[in-house]
């Protein structure tokens, strides 16, 4: 222990389990409404580190179900908030971790998500109609995990995503939107889940993605931006899905992520020497998982869940 370049797994587990935020902290105020996503980031990291049993599964499942809106079929980011697809996917993903999809009214949830598809194939995030390729991914991923992809017009959904493809092979949030590694993950992930990766120009996009590696070894999300640990996930997962991950220098990237750890108190930050948070802790560990780091469970690049969890869902007989 203590060698630079080693994953401080025990410290990260402790950091997540005792993620009690300081009173008066800005994060505590702004995190309230997305607590369900926070739960997904924290719990997936625990599972990747083989420590999911550190939390009480029944308590988690009970709390998640208290964020459920039975009238709409969607989940809110916290108890008493409005439903949104962002948190509906987080809820489904966390329930997948605990193998508890049985608590869900699957068709009701699938109808909620499917009901947000628009005429042009795009998806809104909630009843207020914000459209973004993030929501295409979220909807497609949720429905696939629930074995209900047939409830949407997949062909139209794919057509919309393809309309967001840019000259550099990447994808943006909407047609004409700048390529951004986060949006690329969403679009490539949705295309992967729907078996539509033939729409991706793999070599062109692969080169753009591997150009995201900076001299410090870290990855950025757009040209001329600084490297950030979260892109370890967005870029690597996309490269894996298009089978081009060998085009980057993994050793340098792993070093960059490991240098962003708080080795004493746990947690990972966006860049070396910055303050840690649960979001970057998840993306750092997930990035290492995609690079087959020892001691970390392998992750599925499209569903953003540990591979054994995804296998359990798709190898089991459909409901």
């Amino acid at each position: 222990m203590g060698e630079p370049g080693e994953l401080a797994a025990d410290e990260h587990v402790r950091y997540i389990v005792t993620a009690e935020k300081k009173k008066d902290s800005f994060e505590s105020l702004v995190m309230e409404h997305l607590r369900l996503s926070g739960a997904y980031w924290g719990l997936t990291t625990l599972d990747l580190l083989h420590k999911l049993q550190a939390v009480d599964a029944r308590e988690v499942v009970d709390w998640i179900m208290s964020c459920y809106h039975p009238e709409s079929g969607g989940f809110a980011g916290n108890v008493g908030h409005d439903p949104h697809v962002l948190y509906t996917l987080s809820a489904v993903q966390v329930l997948c971790l605990f193998d508890r999809l049985d608590v869900l009214d699957v068709d009701k949830i699938a109808d909620y998500v499917a009901g947000l598809q628009k005429e042009d194939g795009s998806f809104a995030g909630d009843i207020w109609g914000e459209v973004d390729t993030r929501f295409s991914y979220i909807s497609i991923c949720t429905l696939s995990l629930l074995h209900r992809l047939h409830k949407i017009n997949v062909e139209k959904a794919v057509e919309y995503i393809v309309s967001c493809k840019n000259l550099d092979g990447g994808f943006g949030a909407m047609p004409g939107g700048e390529s951004h590694a986060g949006q690329i993950f969403c679009c490539v992930g949705a295309l992967a889940i729907t078996g539509s990766l033939h729409h991706v120009d793999r070599d062109l996009l692969g080169w753009w993605l591997c150009e995201r590696q900076c001299r410090d070894g870290g990855l950025n999300g757009r040209p001329e931006k600084l490297a950030d640990v979260c892109y370890s996930w967005w870029v690597l997962s996309s490269l894996i899905m298009i089978d081009r991950v060998h085009w980057i220098d993994k050793e340098k990237l792993a070093k960059f992520i490991l240098n962003c750890q708080d080795k004493e108190n746990g947690g990972i930050s966006d860049r070396p020497d910055n303050a840690v948070d649960i979001y970057h802790t998840y993306f750092g560990v997930a990035g290492l998982s995609l690079m087959e780091y020892p001691g970390v469970k392998p992750m599925d690049p499209a569903y953003a869940l540990p591979l054994d969890v995804v296998n359990r869902i798709f190898l089991r007989k459909q409901q």
């Binding site: 997540i16 389990v17 993620a19 009690e20 935020k21 300081k22 009173k23 902290s25 505590s28 995190m31 309230e32 607590r35 926070g38 739960a39 980031w41 924290g42 719990l43 939390v55 009480d56 308590e59 988690v60 009970d62 709390w63 998640i64 649960i278």
Partner: peptide, 8 residues
Amino acid sequence: PCPVVSIS
């Protein structure tokens, strides 16, 4: 009661 990301 969820202990993950508890908030004050």
